[in-house]
């Protein structure tokens, strides 16, 4: 548990900033021409961007953007993928075959490329980014849920539940989903990291939030033109993005170990 305190505190900070950011008197879109490209200093400790807007304020709003997108995408993908995978494996037959083929087709495309294509077709905007990433993201959860259900649906308590006439919905909700939840949660933790990166990538390409709204990806894009004269425009959002993704991944690793009964980490930590 000790090894994840650092990443966990960073994640908590990210969540707090994202949720409580609007309560602070921030002016992320306040253009102040005399401050254009002013570097890190006492007046603004993260400097100003190419329009004289405070980098700190934009970083906070960017954190909120990435948080909202990540949570929305992972929630939608998680629910959609888990239900589809579970139902498919439980029902089997043609339904399962169709789902497996759909998963194969989705996996045949590089995920981010498909998201770029979808976001490009639907037009730029944060809502469309969420839709595009969720349409790509459900596949991983569906595949994992299906594999897990296939391995547990023959277990004795499930067979017994079927034998006593429990309805399929009850079996899925009470006997299957609780058993497969641990690996899905671990998958979701990595999914959050992937979504943060994907959102930044789409915003970098101009398919995410639209000006003047802030996103870490769009902040990095704006900064690339000034790397020689104002490196803080790239370094600040770049470091924030790297720190959050790294923290999520370390936390996900720890969560995987903690939830792994065979490894016994969970019991060790508790004792």
């Amino acid at each position: 548990m000790i090894r994840c305190w650092g990443p966990l505190s960073l994640l908590v900070l990210w969540c707090l900033i994202a949720l409580l950011g609007p309560l602070f008197p921030l002016t992320p879109n306040q253009i102040d021409l005399p401050n254009i490209l002013t570097g890190i200093g006492s007046q603004a400790w993260l400097g100003y961007d190419d329009l004289g807007r405070p980098m700190f304020d934009r970083l906070v709003i960017g954190a909120r953007t990435s948080f909202i997108v990540a949570i929305s995408v992972v929630t939608v993908s998680f629910i959609m993928g888990s239900l589809l995978g579970t139902c498919s494996a439980y029902i089997g037959g043609v339904v399962d075959l169709v789902l497996v083929r759909m998963i194969d087709i989705f996996l045949a495309f590089p995920g981010i490329l498909l998201a770029i294509a979808l976001a490009g077709m639907m037009g730029p905007g944060i809502e469309n980014v969420v839709i595009a990433l969720a349409l790509v993201g459900w596949v991983g959860y569906a595949r994992l849920a299906r594999a897990q259900v296939l391995s547990v649906k023959e277990q004795e308590h499930v067979v017994a539940a079927i034998a006593i006439g429990t309805k399929p919905l009850g079996i899925i909700s009470r006997h299957l989903l609780p058993l497969i939840m641990a690996p899905l949660i671990v998958e979701a933790s990595f999914g959050i990291a992937g979504t943060v990166i994907a959102e930044a990538g789409l915003s970098f390409l101009g398919l995410g939030v639209q000006p003047p709204a802030a996103s870490w990806g769009s902040m990095i894009r704006d900064g690339t033109r000034y790397m020689l004269v104002a490196p803080h425009m790239v370094v600040v959002p770049g470091l924030a993005l790297m720190a959050v993704v790294l923290a999520i991944n370390i936390f996900g690793d720890w969560l995987r170990d903690w939830l792994d009964v065979k490894a016994g980490t969970r019991h060790t930590s508790r004792s």
Binding site: N29, D50, L51, P211
Partner: peptide
């Protein structure tokens, strides 16, 4: 246009117009 310099200029003009009560949606 999607030229970054033109978007930058458009964002400044959008801000200045907003100060007098003209809200602009930017489309690049």
């Amino acid at each position: 246009s999607s030229d970054p310099f033109r978007i930058r200029l458009a964002t400044i003009l959008q801000h200045q117009l907003a100060k007098v009560g003209i809200a602009c949606d930017l489309r690049s």
